[in-house]
Amino acid sequence: METLRLRGPRLTLREYRHTPEEVAALHAVHGDPETVRHLPFGVRDFEDCADQVELYLEAAEEEPRTHYRLAVDDPSGEPVGQAALTREDGHAARLGCVLRRDTWGRGYAGEVTALLCALGFETLGLYRLAARCDPANTASARVLARAGFRYEGRIRAESHRDGGWHDALQYSLLAPEWPGPPWAGPPRP
């Protein structure tokens, strides 16, 4: 497996390791009802998180690789969330992230989004990136707008969880529209 590591000014996105500490870090995110309330799945227990890490490692071995599930490390090296990029065809992918609740409000989601855009556009040579968020998750919508994503519309009944159907807002960004990561200097021509 090729080891992927993306570094921003404060955060690092990296491959998962199947250790009890990594599973516990993922569980701190996926096991928190407040953190997952806007996600298309419900609260996961520790065993579910262990199974997820195993799936992430298996997906990293696939050729060609289409799923990138990466741990998000804070400036101290502590895992505080998850970043995801999933190729949907030869030129497009969907991205997203989820962060531990005690890290919210620090600008981490914007940095993760920029790192995922760099992975998609610069490393993988994709043309289109898409992201979805719960209509009630206004913070995620703001992160996407700041990163240059454009609102495309509402997807009705996109997911089913907690006994009900939930809509999603769809955003996209094309390679020529991406100015590059905000810490990389002036926008590209």
Results as ranks from 00 to 15, higher is better:
A130M: 13
L95T: 05
R44E: 13
L129H: 03
A145S: 11
A71W: 04
L39G: 00
D32W: 07
E22W: 08
E47S: 12
P75A: 06
P182V: 13
R106G: 08
L173D: 04
H91W: 11
A59W: 02
R154M: 11
C117W: 01
A168M: 11
P181E: 12
D89H: 05
P187E: 09
L85H: 02
E54D: 14
R7S: 15
E111L: 01
G110E: 07
G105Q: 06
V72Q: 02
L4P: 04
A118S: 14
L4G: 06
A71P: 03
Y151C: 07
I155V: 15
W178N: 04
L173M: 02
W183Q: 06
E34L: 12
G81M: 03
Y127W: 15
Y171A: 04
N137A: 11
Y56N: 10
A175H: 10
P75W: 11
E58D: 15
P187L: 10
A175Q: 11
E62I: 07
L174T: 11
E62G: 12
Y171P: 01
A92K: 01
S76T: 14
C49P: 04
L129F: 02
R150Q: 14
L4A: 09
L70N: 00
F121H: 03
V80T: 09
F149T: 07
N137P: 09
V143T: 13
V112C: 04
A83R: 00
G107L: 10
V43N: 01
Q52N: 13
L85V: 07
C49Y: 00
E61D: 15
T86E: 13
E88T: 15
R101C: 07
F121L: 04
S140F: 08
Q52E: 15
G185Y: 05
A93K: 01
A59N: 12
V112T: 01
V53Y: 04
L126P: 02
A136M: 03
L116Q: 02
P9L: 15
Q170P: 06
L116Y: 07
